[in-house]
Structure formats: C-alpha cells, structure tokens
Amino acid sequence: MADASIEFKGTSFTLSVLHLKTLLLADIRADLTKKVAQAPDFFYLVPIVVNIEKIESSVDYQAIKELIEEFNFTFVGFTGAITKEQRSFIRKLGFSFVNTAKNTSPEKAVATQNIEEEKPVAVVTDSLAHLYSDKVHRGQVRSGQQLYAKGQNLVIIGSVSAGAEVIADGNIHVYGALRGRAIAGAKGHHKAQIYCQNLEAELVSINGNYWLSESMEQHWGSPVYIHLTDSELTSSTLI
C-alpha cells in the first residue's frame, strides 16, 4: 500500500570519497587547501564521504567533520571497514556511516601527500531492499519455451506447461498452474519468492536451492508461495 505523499526508493549515486591517511589535522588542512585551490568551483558544496580505513589510532570524528565543512564540502558521512563499536560511536555523534557497494582497493599511494582524492565511486544506500520492476507475460507458456526476466520480477497471466521454463532475477508469479520449471532469484537474490495458483511443477529453485516434484507433495495441486528460510525451501498455502 503506497503512502499518498511520500515514497522511499533505493537509488545509486556517485559520490566523492576522501581517503584520509593521517590524523594530523594541520597536514590535512594544508593538502586540502592546495587541492581546492586548483578548482574551487568544482569542490564547492560537493558531497563528500570520508574514508577512515587507513587510520589506525582513534579518530576525532567531530574535528574531521568540521575541517571538511571549512572547505565548504557537504559532509555526508564516514566510510571504511571499521569495527561495530566505531560505527555506533559515529552514530551517537549524529553522523552517518555509509557502506560501499564493493571493496575499493587502495589507490596507488603518493608518498608525499597525506591525503588522497579518489575518483568518485558509486555508493548504494543499503537501507532499502533492491526493488525490481515486473515483466508481464499474458498467455500460456508452452512446452519448450523459455522466458527470462533479466533484472526483473516475472508475472505470468496464464499457465506454465510441463517442459517450459520460467526464470527471473526477482520473484515469479504464475496466475495459473505451474507445471514446468520456475527458477527465481537467478542471479543470487536470496529473498526471491515463487507464487502460483496450482503447484504441479517439475522443479522450483530460489537462488540455486531447488526442489523436484517429489519434495512438493505437501502442497501439490494447491495455491502456494515458496520461499527460503535460512537455506531451506519452504512452501506455504496462499489461502
């Protein structure tokens, strides 16, 4: 049920990440001054995430934030592979901790510089589940046919015949009988689910975990949805 006035969406943004190699604020300030002078307009109000991974001693987070803002950057939050305690400490101060989509390998170090500016990296907000759009197929999926909803959920308005295959990176909904094979979460989406009005499938699979017909005896012929609990497939009736 959508809220009338607002909507949360997961979106990727490109953000600049400032990797700190020292805690010496004076050194950081000096190097930042040089950098910003090269292109002041470019750096004005730019959103910055500060990576503190390389700093071993305890960080004065407040001081770093204020230093960043001295240069008119927009401070977004801290990042880097650090301990849970550090993370909660950061949160208590009222600052964000941001996760990267992947581990960025250290850029080649410039010995004389204490700070390093990395090329912008994509930062994906982790708070919302990855939402897929639906690929809708009207009509029967006949024996020998194969449908693949790449990067989408798959909705079939009709039945899936024995000998047919329906595959989706997201969920699979069959408004009809599922008699063929259904493979959901094909690219590793553990939370993918399979829904159908009549379970008579040859094979169902979620993120590689599969059942053959013999494992479906409990709800065979019923309207069900199938999902993973831990790494075990479970089927539950829809009605």
């Binding site: 029967q140 006949r142 024996s143 020998g144 046919q145 015949s161 024995a162 000998g163 047919a164």
Partner: peptide, 13 residues
C-alpha cells in the same frame, strides 16, 4: 498432449 503443447508454442512463435 505434451507434443501438442510443443507444437502450439511453435504456432505462436
């Protein structure tokens, strides 16, 4: 029936 289903797929595509 299975083979007819297959041929129906061919007729449609």
């Amino acid at each position: 029936v299975r083979d007819s289903d297959r041929i129906l797929g061919m007729l449609a595509s």
